[in-house]
Design a protein around this nucleic acid. Structure first.
Lengths: 146, 146
DNA sequence: TGGGTTATTATGGGATTACATGGTATATAA
DNA sequence: TTATATACCATGTAATCCCATAATAACCCA
């Protein structure tokens, strides 16, 4: 599971350390890499294990070839995805496209989301977090949890 | 089950011993760690077995990947959670964020809650307990007991 | 019941390791 | 060349391990 938030730094080569706990979860799934793509709904970068994107690809594939949404999904996710490999010290290099999308400059916020995680520019995240807190207060009762 | 209350000390490295009975319950579930997060309603820190938070993660995951509330839930809960591992003597290190939230300085109050437990700053807990007693007095008659 | 013994637990500190982060050196591609 | 990617090495800090001691609880036996 990806939980917690971490704050790491981009060096001048564009590398960031992925938090050790995130890496060890990925490697427990058998991966030495992550897949990522720009979020549709906000300025974060979404990260997930390869298996998840495969599942998503399958569900797109099961849509009718004439389904209008098919190309939309395929284009907006799969085409904009990257596979990032870890270097020997557990770092990845972020593609410029994603840096632009996210607004990340020096500092990266890693945000655990369970089966996925995100990278955020710190200020943008703190705004988002505030909103999330407010909404969650009223919505929390809707979510089932024993 | 987590029952009873205990009082232990934070050392200068920020470590506390988790009561042996709590640890042995966790290890009977197969865990050598706990998950915790700041309480939504008071200044305590909530602790639960990893399985409980995984359930939550699953129910978030069952929402559509494009569901708007998805990120809201994940961010407001999973992002603020921590997985704490026991050292070889059964201690955990409390993150500064949680020390701030709880007001814990030297002494930690452990409060068993059945499937979960809490950590409290002692004075805050005794205030809370007082309030709870008063409320219970007026609510007692509402509780059905066949 | 009491007295002494053993286990278990809590706590402190030094030593060791892991991690994030910076740098250098070498290879690849445009 | 210039930029981009990969491997390797160095270092300070923080987390973790390991051992020593203190405090507490559990036990046994006279």
């Amino acid at each position: 599971m990806f939980i917690s938030t971490y704050e790491n730094k981009l060096d001048k080569k564009g590398r960031v350390s992925v938090p050790a706990s995130f890496r060890s979860y990925l490697s427990s799934l058998g991966y030495n890499s992550v897949v990522c793509y720009p979020s549709f709904t906000n300025s974060s970068i979404e990260f997930c294990p390869q298996s998840r994107i495969e599942k998503l690809s399958d569900s797109i594939d099961s849509l009718s070839p004439f389904e209008e949404n098919r190309d939309t999904f395929a284009t907006s996710i799969l085409a904009d995805s990257f596979q990032l490999n870890f270097d020997s010290d557990g770092r990845v290099v972020l593609p410029k496209k994603l840096l632009d999308h996210s607004g990340i400059k020096e500092t990266v916020f890693f945000v655990g989301q369970g089966k996925t995680f995100q990278m955020w520019e710190p200020q943008k995240f703190s705004k988002f977090r505030e909103e999330a807190r407010k909404k969650a207060k009223t919505l929390r009762s809707n979510l089932k949890w024993s």
